[in-house]
Every structure is written in structure tokens, then in C-alpha cells.
Computed example of a mutant assay.
Amino acid sequence: MKACLCKSFGPPSNLVIEEMPDPVAGAGEVVVSVQACALNFFDTLIIQGRYQYKPDMPFSPSAEFAGVVEATGEGVGKVSVGDRVMGYMRWGAAREMVSVCEADLVHLPDAVSFEVAAGLAVTYGTTLHAFRDRAKLQAGETVAVLGASGGVGQAAVEIATVMGAKVIACASSEEKLGFARELGAELTIDYSTQPLKETLKELTGGDGVNVVYDPVGGDLSEQALRATAWEGRFLVIGFAAGDIPKIPLNIVMLKGCDVQGVFWGASVDRDPDAHRSNMEQVLKWVGEGKLKPHVHAVYPMEEISAALEEIAARRVRGKVIVKP
């Protein structure tokens, strides 16, 4: 099989495409023929050795995929050869075939394409876990989404809207905000020209927002936290800005608010049944047309370096898909 390999930490241009032996399904494992896999911002970090996981060399980037079951190992009973599936595996999906545990797979309805399904697990899985399991988001509440045009930002705008919340999309340009409005955002803030805290307070009549969804970090985090409502929830998703903010705890005390960590990858391992339930809900919404995931571009595996460079340069709206 063909695989994209990282053999030394560095920029995307270091990646190589090589032939490898086909995987074999061990006990409890399933071999999947990968029809599409997706790239995320953390893939630009993991190939540089700057991510929380540091795989042994050589490894393949891409944490999520969709495809067809090719073979099953001893003890596998929930999927069969020929089934359409999607899955999540931290890293290693940028290959023509992968071997994963049966528990890591979710059945894929015929109504959802491989290209769309490949990009659902990380962004939509993270977001539904954040809103449903962590923040307990309720219809009628107000949600501020930072970085609203990126992969998780798009998912946050869409899912909060489907759950009945009022969404304030926050991004760094009018073009990005226009995209967020197409996804369902009622209000928008360009934080490159508008003060985030003051504008959030103004748009909520001084009350503040019930939930902040923050995949950006940096200087924006404290501003957004200061704009939360009484007993608001601040969701820590990630740090795309590169800087991990230091939050004054007196803000948390004075607002009676909660700062909630969203470590979706660990939650998948700790509660796989809840993860599967969330993904089945996401797939149902996609099938019904309530969620319309945006695919930024589809690249052949030979152009995966260019795809990662697009993500690193913040030129992506929605998901980047790779077809082995």
C-alpha cells in the first residue's frame, strides 16, 4: 500500500510518499480501505514535534478517515467486510489502508459521502462533546464562537445553531464572517477591528454570553472570558494562536462562571459509547441536511504537503480532505 510518512520532524515538505506492507487485522481489529482522510491544524504541529502526542518514527499524519472494511480479525462482530465506516485514530490515516480497533469505528450511512464523513470526527465530534457533554448548552442561550471560519469554528456555528442557540461568530475578516453567516451565525464580530469584550457585551445588551467556544487562545481568551454572563461557561478547545493564555482567576470568581477543558481525544478513550452516540447524532443531522459540512478542498495524497501548508497559513475555510 501507499503511505504518506513523516520520518523526521520538520515542515510539510519533509513528508514522503512510500510503499509499505498492507496491514493485517489482529484480534479485535479491522482493516479499512481508506477512501478519504482529513487534515487538521494539529497535523501541522505533530509533524514538527510540537504536539501533545509525539509518535514513533516513521508515522503518517491524519487522525480521521472514512472507507470500506477490507478484513476483520478474530472477535470482531459489529462490522463486516464491505461495510462503510468512519473512524478516528490520533494519527496514521494518510495511507491507502489502516488497521484499527473495532471500537474506533462508526457505521456510515449511504447518504453521507466518504469525503464529508472523513472530516466529521475531530471537528464535529469535539464540538458536540463540548456543547452537549461539557457546557450542557440549552436552546435560547447565546454562544460566542472564536475563530468561526476554521474547521472547529464552522462546526461550532452549525451545531450551536442546530441546538437552538443564538450564535455570535467572531473572526479576523469580513470575508470569514460572511462565511459564518452562511452557516447560521446571527451576529458577527471582526476582532481585528472591533474590541471583543466590549462588542460581545454590547450585542448581548450588557448581559454577556452564556457560552464561549475558544479554539484560538492568545489575547482573545481573557477578553472573551470577561464578556461571559453570570454562570457562563468558557470552553477551552485549543490554542491556534500559538500562545496559551494565563487567566486571572478573580474573573472566574466574580462571574460565577466555569472554565471547562474540552479534551475530546481523551474523552473518546474514556467513554467510547458516548463518542459513538455523538457521532451517530452528527451523521443523522448531516443526513437530514441540518449540518452541511464545508470541504475546503480535496487533495491527492501526493499533494499532502501543499494541503498542510494551506492549513498552517490560515487560508482554509472548513475541512481539507486527502484521497489516498
Rank of each mutant, 00 (worst) to 15 (best):
E202M: 11
E202S: 15
L203T: 00
L203C: 00
G205M: 09
G206A: 07
G206N: 11
G206H: 11
D207F: 12
V209C: 01
V209A: 01
V212L: 10
Y213T: 05
D214W: 09
D214M: 09
P215G: 15
P215Y: 04
P215F: 06
V216Y: 06
V216D: 04
G217T: 00
G217W: 00
G218V: 05
G218R: 01
G218K: 08
G218M: 10
D219C: 01
D219M: 04
D219S: 15
D219W: 04
L220I: 04
L220P: 01
L220S: 13
L220Q: 12
S221Q: 13
E222G: 01
Q223S: 10
Q223M: 03
A224D: 06
L225N: 03
A227R: 02
A227M: 05
A227H: 06
T228E: 02
T228I: 14
A229T: 04
E231H: 14
E231Y: 09
E231N: 13
L235S: 05
V236D: 02
V236Q: 02
I237C: 05
G238H: 11
F239Y: 15
A240L: 09
A241F: 04
G242F: 11
P245D: 10
P245G: 13
P245W: 06
P248R: 13
P248V: 07
L249I: 13
N250H: 13
N250R: 12
V252R: 05
V252F: 05
L254N: 14
C257F: 05
D258T: 14
D258K: 08
D258H: 10
V259L: 14
Q260F: 01
Q260T: 14
W264Y: 15
W264K: 00
G265E: 08
G265Q: 07
S267M: 10
V268G: 01
D269Y: 12
D269C: 08
D269E: 14
D269W: 12
R270Q: 08
D271N: 15
A274V: 14
H275K: 14
H275I: 04
S277K: 14
S277H: 12
S277T: 15
N278Y: 02
N278V: 00
N278Q: 13
M279F: 04
E280V: 07
Q281V: 07
V282R: 08
